[in-house]
Write a protein that binds this DNA or RNA. Structure first.
Lengths: 189, 189
DNA sequence: GTCTATATAGGGATAGAC
DNA sequence: GTCTATCCCTATATAGAC
């Protein structure tokens, strides 16, 4: 069943968190202002008060939030002064949490649909690029050659993104967990 | 620039081919009847003549087409009485063609968005499951253990699906080609 | 900041002539 | 089969009171 009456959001961040969940699950065009109003518990006028630019503004806020989240939970841990295996495990733990063990879709994949029609495509794509770069950098700093580092980083992120698709299609969450394990082995082999 | 005035479709299959392209690029909710009308060169009434069930009917026809295409171009080659490496290469060649070397999105991934709202989710997911099954079967018939076969098949398809996402996000088509090579090595190692 | 009411456009879909 | 015209609904967005 769909979640019933939502409790009112306490802060702007809580609003954006709910927007994040809506957009990642249905894509930009798949979410209506009416649904957003219901899911956030805010009336339409309140929404336009918080986001004067309307729906595009909301999507931009969500992407900005995702960027900040990634910096804090992925990129920063990858720069930590700890062994590579620990950095990778921190990243993968955050990723599993972000994607709810494979049950929640990736915002990037969802927002990338209908490219060229949404307002904020470039920022969305940059999230993936930044992730690859940071991961490759972490591998290089652990003595892996530049080429190999980029290849492994790209491969691991491809595995994670692909597992989200396949796990949802097959309705088998264990596929995501297995893929995370494979990504780990790829990275710290 | 967007493609200009479209030439009229010659057959129902040509209509469905254009619908396929629209839905895979924008998802179910991302395509409007108006766009479909323009892209196919058919007026709205003509569309509803060919697809009495409306948009849902069009999507169902596209999924049915995808199923038939997969049977002919993927599943049948995987059953051919030729060496495993050749079967895999036939599959990967068809896949590269289907996804236009990484430039075209996957219908399954696009249609899976906003799950539970589209009419035909189960059939879409089944496409992936059938693919995994057929690929695993091909590996088993070449002497690979059942567990290993399913794992390799799943891993290869995850790589392909993930590469489509990452290649689009990074706007780097070579990522897709590299991933295809990696999938091949995974399968025929 | 949030409400009610409303403007305006576009969505999917249908009717009926041809 | 395709066209024109149209219906009804929902979409995004705004106005103005509170």
């Amino acid at each position: 069943m769909t979640t019933g009456a939502p409790s009112p959001p306490r802060s702007r961040e809580e609003i954006i968190l709910r927007l994040f969940d809506l957009f990642r699950r249905a894509g930009y065009e798949g979410v209506s202002i009416g649904e957003i109003s219901h899911a956030t518990g805010l009336g339409k006028s309140s929404l336009y008060h918080h986001f004067p630019g309307g729906k595009a503004d909301m999507a931009a806020a969500v992407v900005a939030f995702a960027k900040a989240w990634m910096e804090a939970r992925i990129l920063a841990p990858l720069r930590a002064a700890i062994p590579l295996a620990d950095r990778v495990d921190l990243m993968l733990a955050a990723i599993s949490e972000l994607y709810d063990g494979g049950a929640a879709p990736c915002l990037v994949a969802s927002m990338l649909l209908s490219r060229g029609r949404d307002p904020i495509d470039a920022d969305v794509g940059a999230l993936i690029c930044d992730w690859i770069d940071a991961l490759a950098r972490a591998l290089r700093h652990s003595g892996i050659s530049p080429n190999e580092a980029v290849e492994r980083a790209t491969s691991a992120i491809i595995t994670i993104e692909g597992a989200l698709i396949v796990a949802r299609a097959a309705e088998r969450l264990d596929i995501f967990g297995d893929a995370i394990d494979r990504a780990r082995r790829t990275l710290i082999a």
